[in-house]
């Protein structure tokens, strides 16, 4: 590098800009988790439902998205959403839809494992009490399933947080892309990329630490 040596001043000067990028990353993560969870739960219920057509459709959906790379999914939706809606809605919305659709497939598999981890006797007991299928799910199975799943759901949230860096390919100013803009305009690639790596590492390690605490907490009970 022509300028030579490390110069982390540029990092301090660009903190407001980077913070804005991190805001977008976190917003995308939170909305992606929320949407993915809701849609993933619906998919999991459909997959375990006693109707063949429903479970087949949900299974197909999950296998389809799980065999596609996220970048390709982002490209698909980036071009597809405006066409389907017939109007431009901006990159953020397109990417968010892509994330929700993609992550839902993974959340569905986690949910399914969680629901199946609830002992069959519980569901039978619910039925014996005269609960309908939706009531049984709502009051007996799902509350217990969610408890079992919490650590792995948080792990998946960390994965999603890391995956949001891929919006780089459509030029959305998330944390990585903001840093990239400064890195290239100031010719400070080294400092910016190392900073980005450290920030991601710190946040994800903190998340992992929480996962371990949760696992310990649930193992004791």
């Amino acid at each position: 590098m022509e300028s030579g040596g490390f110069d982390f001043h540029i990092v301090f000067h660009s903190i407001p800009f980077l913070a804005k990028g991190m805001g977008l990353t976190l917003l995308l993560t939170v909305l992606g988790i929320a949407g993915g969870l809701v849609f993933g739960t619906v998919l999991a219920l459909a997959r375990l439902a006693p109707f063949k057509v429903l479970s087949f459709a949900a299974g197909t959906y999950v296998n389809f998205f799980r065999s596609m790379p996220l970048i390709l999914v982002i490209f698909w939706f980036y071009f597809l959403v405006p066409l389907v809606l017939g109007q431009e809605i901006g990159a953020f919305q397109s990417v968010l839809i892509a994330f929700i659709m993609f992550e839902a497939a993974y959340y569905c598999e986690i949910m399914r494992a969680g629901i199946q981890s609830v002992r069959v006797g519980q569901a039978y007991a619910g039925e014996a009490l005269g609960l309908t299928y939706p009531q049984n799910m709502r009051y007996v199975v799902l509350p217990q399933a969610f408890r079992n799943m919490i650590p792995i759901l948080v792990s998946q949230a960390i994965v999603l947080f890391q995956d949001t860096a891929l919006v780089y390919v459509v030029g959305l100013s998330d944390f990585l892309y903001s840093a990239d803009i400064i890195a290239n305009s100031e010719n400070r690639l080294m400092e910016m990329y190392i900073t980005v790596a450290i920030v991601y590492f710190a946040l994800c390690s903190w998340g992992q630490f929480q996962v371990r605490n949760l696992q310990k907490k649930f193992a004791h009970e």
């Binding site: 960390i158 990239d180 080294m190």
Partner: peptide
Amino acid sequence: NVPLLVQLFLWYFV
């Protein structure tokens, strides 16, 4: 704990 894309940039540019 570091996104793969960031790792790729680190290896390639840094």
